[in-house]
Design a protein around this nucleic acid. Structure first.
Lengths: 261, 261
DNA sequence: CGCCGGTTTGAGTCCATTCAAGAGGAGTGG
DNA sequence: CCACTCCTCTTGAATGGACTCAAACCGGCG
């Protein structure tokens, strides 16, 4: 019953974005930009493509001279241990710059994989750096983005280090709900959970079996309701409390408050 | 026997740095800077102080208009769950900018505590931002620093998510050894482990008791040797293999190779 | 209709935790 | 100089949360 991601056969999901608007909107929200700066960003050369679920947007270790932005769909950063155990390091959605590290350092030490079908834009690294050098505010915006990204990673570290399975999973769900809300992705109290239980395990450092049992408990206790690929949170305050969730680490500008449903 | 940090009563440790040289050296190594840029950084207004072991360099949540650089000694970033469980998020040493987030976002969502007596420099946030706006290369250097910081956090995430106690602890030790080597802090194959076993637990998401048993095993197996606050690695390649350690994530410029002893 | 990816369920095991107590070294005060 | 305290490390025994292995189920798809 109630599968989380019963083959993300999309269709409705098939994305069509044709400009960097989503990215600019994101930077705008985080850092504020003048019209000049927005236009400069929108004028960046970018190569748009659609990538199927399961394929990679960015290959680990592979040197590239471009930097990838996510315009629609969901993706995840991940890396594996020598023994082949995979850890998901971040989840990305519309508007995210998935490999800013690439722009800054020239290498990525992680891969980025499509969780659903996605539209992406590849921006030449040089063009981005040039823009940053010319517009201090854009440099600052990119820096800010990297700092927020790091803040989220730290919270995940807390999650793995100090919380049990139940808390880890509910924390992840809270984060997804709030972030999707912020990116205007959720409708009527539903939000996407574009992950299989196996993948939730790869986020939370648990096995798929244990994820399954834990989610069942959450359902049984009436915290959440699950429907194909989507989820709704029945008792937001209770889930937030159980998860020890405090959205401050997301550094979203004030304005939206409380329940993301 | 063989305590790891039997009261870091310092003395020999008491630091005296009077300039931002250590910080500039670090940025130089990572990003390269012209003489003009170096001079500009060194000319930054900065307030230097010594802070005792256990005291805080940066208070969680507290708004400040300055940004803290570590000139000598060791410190750690940390945050606690609602239930009061503490997680250490990063370990800092000579030359590290411990709250770049403060400069970029204007808030920190973590505290920074001295692990030994430390010398720090507080740099007015505005002065730093002004410099970054004037010198694109400095902006880029700060950005790069934030990216490397994030890369380390991601590796820690891997560590907690996918490795067992033995691997987590040895991975931490490998990282300390390599980073101290890079910051020219270790002598004759010894390196500082400025953490109590309790604190190692707070880094690795383990209890002090289990850390103790695991370290004893590592000693018994002849991988490491422990002496008050310092440690030496007997069989570096073996430890690296056991820890699944790959220094790439530290993004240290090429040059130094292999064993940090 | 059979295959495939994902979810569900069961039973047994183990790594790490919890609780508790002792031991050792370093500083402190009488 | 000794008693006292604090902090850290050490050890033991019992418990439990999460894992492993394995099999069954389920819906969609070719």
């Amino acid at each position: 019953m109630a599968s989380l991601a019963p083959q993300a056969r999309d269709g409705a999901m098939r994305p069509l974005a044709r400009s960097l608007l989503a990215v600019v909107a994101r930077l705008q929200r985080q850092s504020g930009l003048t019209d000049t700066e927005r236009d400069a960003l929108l004028a960046l050369p970018a190569h748009m493509t659609v990538i199927e679920r399961g394929d990679h947007l960015v290959q680990e270790g592979k040197a590239t001279d471009s930097c990838c932005a996510l315009l629609a769909g969901f993706a995840c950063r991940h890396r594996s241990t020598g023994a082949g155990q995979r850890q998901i390091l971040a989840i990305h959605m519309k508007g995210d710059l998935v490999d800013l590290q690439n722009a800054g350092l020239g290498t990525v030490d992680y891969g980025v994989q499509a969780l659903t079908a996605v539209t992406v834009a590849y921006i030449p690294r040089r063009a981005l750096l040039k823009l940053a050098a010319e517009h201090p505010a854009i440099a600052k915006a990119l820096w800010t983005d990297a700092l927020i990204d790091a803040s989220i990673t730290r919270e995940w570290l807390m999650n793995l280090g100090r919380r049990n399975a139940y808390q880890r999973i509910s924390h992840l769900l809270c984060e997804l709900a709030v972030r999707e809300n912020h990116a205007s992705l959720n409708d009527d109290g539903n939000f996407a959970v574009p992950l299989t239980q196996e993948q939730i395990g790869e986020v939370t450092g648990l096995t798929a079996v244990h994820v399954n049992r834990t989610i069942q408990r959450m359902r049984a206790e009436g915290f959440i309701r699950v429907a194909a690929q989507r989820m709704s949170i029945v008792d937001w305050p209770a889930l937030v409390a159980a998860a020890d969730f405090d959205r401050a680490y997301l550094h979203q500008p004030a304005g939206e408050n409380g329940v993301p449903s």
